[in-house]
Structures are given as structure tokens and as C-alpha cells.
Design a protein around this nucleic acid. Structure first.
Lengths: 334, 334
DNA sequence: TTGTAAGCGTTATCAA
DNA sequence: TTGATAACGCTTACAA
């Protein structure tokens, strides 16, 4: 059985209050007492019980993180940012998946509530009205990273997908592409799908290019979706000279199918990805892509939550600037 | 302030004991009482306090996970396996990084101790004697995944890197390769480096091929390490027809540098990776690689820990079978 | 500088 | 079927 402060108190011949003071460095005891307590504490192999502390202080020093069911390097970076920051400020991270398509979201939030996390970070999960209510009912600071809701009062941190997509497509147009396809966005996804698609369309329109719906191959944000999109372009005999992809994985799918069909990237077709995930510089050719500062978003989002916990301040939503990382998957049309 | 069972008891006109019984479905109360308690509970928006429960029951229903500082898809899969399983059995996951090269390992374990996690999973972190002592001093079930120690009594779950490497190199030899390089293993890493290197050497020897130390380019398990290894092969004018890589990322580095130098994979040079991570089927060409069932290792490792918590049973070390996943990065030499 | 004792939100024992 | 009450390990007035 692990030693408690009572044990220390008994052995050291002091009260539990004094032990507590010494252990928490609160001062107000003489050196001798301190030494004795520390010695006994070490001797008994004492280890503080955070849960007991949490109970009386009504704060657990934990941050809950809820994320989707899927594993991509994408989440890894965000989580690392979160964990680094929590660690810095003395918080622990409790992690849970929200299930595919957020099926477990209510259970997840309930769990976080029962664990009495001091703050909550929700990554990339689409929240509906009832989920938002569970969320606010927890009565703790929270932030959404890389997702948002319709409601003004739900703080989030994400890049503006519409304008990021616009930037990417504009870049292709400026490199003289006129027949530009789009792959891998789900138009029914109001967070990451629809806005990217709209940015794509608007860029074309602003440059006087007609939007051809046949050039839009919607789907998931994954590799397979990219493969089948490219397959479709080939079968359609669509004369696309470039494809804007809703994620890097989709872009790799495009490139993979091109390779199988002896279509060369970027000589025969240019490709732009989205995320600047780790794979983007590992691809052949290295991928030009839209960068979201994932690690920093994790760090900053977590920081905001901790600040809100400690100062009881309100968290403001924040749009993170995006950036186009130019590598080698786009060629100028001559 | 959140409602407690005391509040419910007062409003419902029963004792806290009865409230506790109802809430935990323990039976032994009549229907009316149950209904009333449930109603009041809902009305007050009661949410159980897990920490208080943990305190009296001396178990937190949490599993601690310690992993390295790096983010790769590799860990994502393992963690997903762990989280899925814990969730299934009603456990929560507390996550922490061990810092680069395990610098934070002691703090991490101490933190897990203070949080009184019921079990601990350590992923891919190399443990030295003092760390093992901290670990055992926690007095809880634990398992190492994808790492091991010298000590017999530290349970682990990992593939046999030596024989997996042997399999991969044997495969290359059987495809008539005779000048086979190795890239990206750290020979001073007794867990994942040394055994893979030894497997490589042994396979060559068993087939009567002399080991040429110049063909071994050691380094980290990352992309850059692969790039510089290939660069070195080129500068050495080494006549390698195949390269066995210590990780998929290293393999992608090899492929990337080949691409830049117009060396074609697999026509000019064959490449075998290690991990079967998500990127391996996204690469161009798709990568032939050694598979470790990461998700399953996470699942099973977590299951073992939970079983040990519940039955106080001992966890046995387990060597997981590897598999060579054949894709398109290896060609037979004619 | 130190100790006493109440209390955090539960569960669990015992008695009614 | 229910209720008092003592724990769990800790912090924190308040008193000495």
C-alpha cells in the first residue's frame, strides 16, 4: 500500500498539516521539520495522490482532448502541440476518440465531465446543436481546433479554408492552368469541404474561367479518394492540366494513379495538396501544398484554454493565416 | 457549482447512500425511490465525480501511455489501438510524451504515479535501469510496446526485429540482388537498430555474400536519414542494386533522392521499407515493406494490461509475428 | 511554527 | 429497502 501523508506524519512525529505544508513548499516551518519530513517521505517512498488533491481543490489540472476516430499525421502534430503546452503548464492530457463521424461524441464529453477536466479541446470533430449544449453544460473553458460551428459564441481556431483554397487555385491559374480539377472534398462537410470547394469555384470565376462541375470529384479526404478521382479524370478523358486536392493524402492518391498510368507529375499534370502534412515533402515529386500550422495551433489552442482556466477569461475565436508551401508538383503551362 | 449526491439526497428526501445505490444500479431499493432519485438527478444536472469515486475505491480506471517526443503515423496507429480498447473496457487514457530521447521519462512516470493510473503502457521508449526501477516502484501492471529491456521480468510486445530484417534481406537476395545496402538504422540503438542490422548481416552471410561495411549507412529512422544515405551511395559510386531501410520514412528518403538523381525505383534500384506505415502504400512506387501490426499491438497490449489490473495476473512478453508486405518497389535482377 | 479538525464527493459497512 | 457514518488522502481555516 502506498504511503500517505498520515504515515509520514506518524513516523516523523508531526501533524498531517505540517507534512502537507512541507511537501507543497508553502513555507512557515523550520528547517529541521522540513528535513525530517522530507527524509521520512523519501524513506517511505511517498507519492502524492493527485486525485485527493483535486477533490479538495476542485481542479484536476487536466485538459481533455477529443478527436476523430481516424489516425493521420495531421492529428499527431496537433496533439503534440497540445501535450507540450499542457506539460509546460503542469497539466495532463486525457485523450479520447469521438468515434467515426462523432458517434461517440456525447459519451466522450460525458466522460470528460466525470473526470472533471479543467478545460477541453476538440479537434476536427463536427459539432451539432445537442453536442454544443453538452459542451457548454460542462461549464469549463473549451476551444475547437480545425473545426467550427454556426454559433458565434463557440470559440475556435482554424485557418480560413475558403481563402486558403482560393490561394491554391489562384496559384495554379497564375501558372497558366485553365482546366483545373478538384478532388477529395465532401461538399456536405460544412467545415472543411464546402468552403474549400467554394474557394476553388470563386477563384476560377474571378479569373474568368467557367466552373465545370464534371471536374469536381468529391469524396473523402483520404488516399483512396484521390486515386478514384484521378481514375475518373482519366475515364472522362478530362483535359485537366492541374488538380487541386482537399488534402495531401488525396494528392498522393492522384499522384499514385498518375504513376500507374504513366502520367507524369508535374510534367503532364500539376497537383496541389492541402495540410502540409509530413508526407508532403516525402512524396515524389515533393508536393506543393497549403500549410496549416498544426503544431502551433495545438500549442496556442491549449495555451488559450489554460489561460481561460486560470484567469477565467473568455476565449476569442481566431483565424490562423495559411501559407502556400511551394515544392515541385506544379509546373507552368507554356 | 455542480450538484453532488448530497444535493440529490436532500431534494429527493433520501440518504446519500440510497442515491449512490440508484446511480450505480446496485439494486435493493424500490421502484419509486429509483424514479425519484433519477428524476432529481436529471433535474439538477448531476454528473458523477470520478475522482471522488477513485479515492474511495482506490482505482482510477485510467491507463497511462508514455511515448516518444516524435510524431509519426506509427504512434497514431498504436495509440488508436490503445484508446479503442480502453474505451471498450471503461478506461480512460492519459497521455504524455517522454521527451526527446526519453529525457522526460522520470517526470512522466512520476506524473502517472501521482495520477494513480491503474496501468501503464510505454511505447517505443528505451528504458534504462533507473527508469525500470521507477516503473516497477509504481506497483502497477505495465507493458512495453515496440521496445524492450535487458531484464527478463519486464513484459514487452514487439516483433522480432532481427528476424524481420532477415526476412526482408532474404527476400532481396531471392530476387537475385547481391549488392544490398542498408540505410537508417542506429547501431547504438539496442532495440530497433542493432537487431535489424544484425539480421541484415546474417542474411547476407547465410547466402554467402560478404558484408561490406561501406554499404551500411547508419542514421536516424527519418526521411532525411534516407536522403543522405542515398546521397552517400551515389557519391561512393556504390553499385547497390537494392537498399534495405530501417523504416518506411527512410525508404521514402531513398526514393526521393533517387528521383532527384533520375535513378528509377525499382528499375534501377530496389527498396524495402520497415513498418508498413500509412505512407508505404502512398509512395511512388508503392513500397514493399516489413509489416508490424501496430493497431493490433496497441489493442492487445492494452488488453493485457487491463486483464492484469483486473485479475492481478502477470503479463507475459510476446513476440509478434511480422510479415513482408509485397508491393512494387522491388524488382528481380536478371 | 505547528496542530486540530472540518470538508472535498464518493462508497461501503453496519444497523435498523 | 433504507439510513448513519466512517472512511479515502488531501488541503486549509483557525487556534494555539
Amino acid at each position: 500500500m502506498a504511503a500517505t501523508i498520515k504515515d509520514i506524519a506518524r513516523v516523523a512525529g508531526v501533524s498531517t498539516a505540517t507534512v502537507s505544508r512541507v511537501i507543497n513548499n508553502l513555507g512557515g516551518y523550520n528547517e529541521e521539520t522540513e528535513k525530517k519530513v522530507m527524509a521520512v517521505s523519501k524513506e517511505l517512498g511517498y507519492r502524492k495522490n493527485e486525485n485527493a488533491r483535486s477533490l479538495v481543490q476542485k481542479s484536476t489540472n487536466t485538459i481533455g482532448v477529443i478527436m476523430p476516430d481516424v489516425t493521420t499525421a495531421f492529428y499527431g502534430d496537433i496533439i503534440k502541440g497540445i501535450e507540450d503546452t499542457s506539460y509546460e503548464y503542469g497539466y495532463s492530457v486525457i485523450l479520447t476518440h469521438a468515434g467515426s463521424h462523432g458517434s461517440r461524441i456525447h459519451e466522450s464529453m460525458n466522460l470528460m465531465g466525470e473526470r472533471r477536466v479543467d478545460g477541453l479541446i476538440i479537434v476536427s470533430v463536427e459539432l451539432h446543436e445537442s453536442a454544443i449544449q453538452s459542451l457548454t453544460s460542462l461549464g469549463i473553458p473549451y476551444i475547437l481546433i480545425s473545426t467550427k460551428t454556426d454559433r458565434e459564441d463557440t470559440p475556435y481556431m482554424k485557418v480560413d479554408d475558403y481563402s486558403a483554397a482560393y490561394t491554391a487555385v489562384k496559384y495554379l491559374i497564375e501558372h497558366n492552368h485553365r482546366t483545373i480539377g478538384m478532388a477529395g472534398a465532401n461538399p456536405h462537410d460544412p467545415i472543411a469541404g464546402e468552403p474549400r470547394m467554394n474557394g476553388y469555384k470563386q477563384a476560377l470565376q474571378d479569373y474568368g474561367i467557367k466552373v465545370d462541375l464534371n471536374l469536381i470529384k468529391s469524396g473523402g479526404f483520404n488516399f483512396e479518394s484521390g486515386k478514384s478521382a484521378m481514375q475518373a479524370f482519366i475515364e472522362d478523358e478530362a483535359a485537366v492540366t492541374a488538380v487541386f486536392c482537399a488534402s495531401d493524402e488525396v494528392a498522393l492518391g492522384i499522384i499514385s494513379t498518375c504513376y500507374e498510368n504513366e502520367i507524369h507529375v508535374p510534367n503532364d499534370i500539376s497537383v496541389v495538396g492541402y495540410d502540409n502534412s509530413k508526407v508532403s515533402h516525402m512524396s515524389v515529386p515533393p508536393l506543393t501544398t497549403v500549410a496549416q500550422p498544426l503544431y502551433d495551433m495545438g500549442r496556442e489552442g491549449c495555451f488559450e484554454v489554460i489561460a481561460a482556466i486560470q484567469n477565467k477569461s473568455k476565449i476569442e475565436s481566431k483565424v490562423i493565416p495559411h501559407e502556400l508551401v511551394v515544392r515541385k508538383s506544379v509546373k507552368t503551362v507554356v
